[in-house]
Write a protein that binds this DNA or RNA. Structure first.
Length: 310
DNA sequence: AAACGCATCAACCGCATCCGA
DNA sequence: ATCGGATGCGGTTGATGCGTT
């Protein structure tokens, strides 16, 4: 037995709202409020509509200060930035934009921004290049990240070497964590086929250290990488939400305790939240730069990688 | 002018979460 | 602590309009 319907579907009107219905709902809510009960509201307002439909109509169209269409570039950037940080939490994103509804933001993303992003016309920035973060700081001190030494050229891959990347990751509380085993997204701003990595979501392997850090510290700031996604040849990309990457071509040394884990697969699973999948099964080359006490990926070369839809 | 395809967006659906009894 | 109704939310659908052929 299924869930009881929220209203008698046989006796409620569906489909587009007429101006008369809009006026009735608007007039009732403006003079009486919602009464904290949308289910009972349509009857009181003289409407043959489901309460959920009334709520949606009010929230998305009739309530005051609603803006429709005509998203500004600034709004586009805010949406893209927040999407990069929190994914498809449309109501949370809409709450940061005055007069915009979750439905509007969602539609705008799905019809315009996603395509703009794919075409490389919009950037995702979770951190600015000068190190300031768009996220609030925490007072938790920054633990010393694990030092890494690059022993060989990044292109002299050794299958016995394990990639360990201390990477900043924002959590739900807008605090940061150092995740020792995560990789991020990529930027194609400067080089064809070369991507600047930036951690968005990562999957920690067994035993991965994770600590909260203070994003105001200088080391942390210097670890901040711009995230932007610019993908040429997007015709080979279709909808999905994850990426598999094999990093066994990357060359970075590791501390002893991490060596013991090195028989584990180096495949990492990344959720970019952009809704399209890349299968980098062949593995990228990557280059690291020293940033304070840690090495961070500077760019990753996917130019030869096998990119295909799932 | 008609047919077709695509883009847009309002509205719906069902699940998750909240909250009061 | 549990249950059930109300609400919130994100994914999806379908009507409509517009551009192209």
């Amino acid at each position: 037995m299924g869930r009881a319907p929220c209203c008698d579907k046989a006796n409620v009107k569906r489909g587009p709202w007429s101006p008369e219905e809009d006026a009735a709902l608007k007039g009732y809510v403006e003079s009486h409020g919602t009464g904290g009960n949308w289910i009972a509201l349509p009857k009181k307002a003289g409407l043959r509509r489901c309460g959920k439909s009334c709520r949606l109509r009010w929230l998305n169209y009739l309530r005051p200060d609603i803006k429709h269409g005509g998203f500004t570039e600034e709004e586009d950037n805010i949406i893209c930035n927040l999407y990069g940080q929190m994914g498809s939490r449309w109501s949370a994103i809409a709450s940061k934009l005055h007069g915009r509804t979750d439905n509007d933001v969602k539609n705008h993303w799905n019809t315009k921004l996603k395509k703009k992003m794919m075409a490389g016309k919009v950037s995702l920035k979770t951190f600015t290049e000068n190190g300031t973060s768009t996220l609030p700081s925490t007072s938790t001190p920054l633990p010393t990240p694990q030092s890494l030494n690059i022993q060989n050229s990044p292109f002299n891959a050794s299958p016995n070497q394990t990639l360990v990347l201390p990477i900043l990751e924002a959590n739900d509380n807008n605090a940061f964590t150092v995740n020792q085993n995560s990789i991020i997204s990529f930027d194609q701003t400067n080089h064809h086929g070369l991507y600047t990595p930036q951690i968005m979501h990562g999957v920690s392997r067994t035993g991965a250290a994770s600590s909260r850090i203070n994003n105001n510290t200088s080391d942390n700031n210097s670890n901040s990488h711009m995230v932007s996604l610019s993908q040429e040849g997007s015709s080979s990309i279709s909808d999905s939400s994850s990426i598999a990457v094999n990093y066994n071509k990357c060359v970075v040394s590791q501390p002893q305790q991490q060596q013991q884990q090195s028989d584990e697969s180096m495949d990492m699973f990344m959720d970019f939240g952009f809704g399209f999948p890349y299968d980098f099964a062949n593995g990228p080359n990557c280059h690291y730069e020293r940033v304070g006490e840690i090495f961070a990926p500077e760019w990753v070369d996917f130019s030869y990688a096998d990119i295909k839809p799932h």
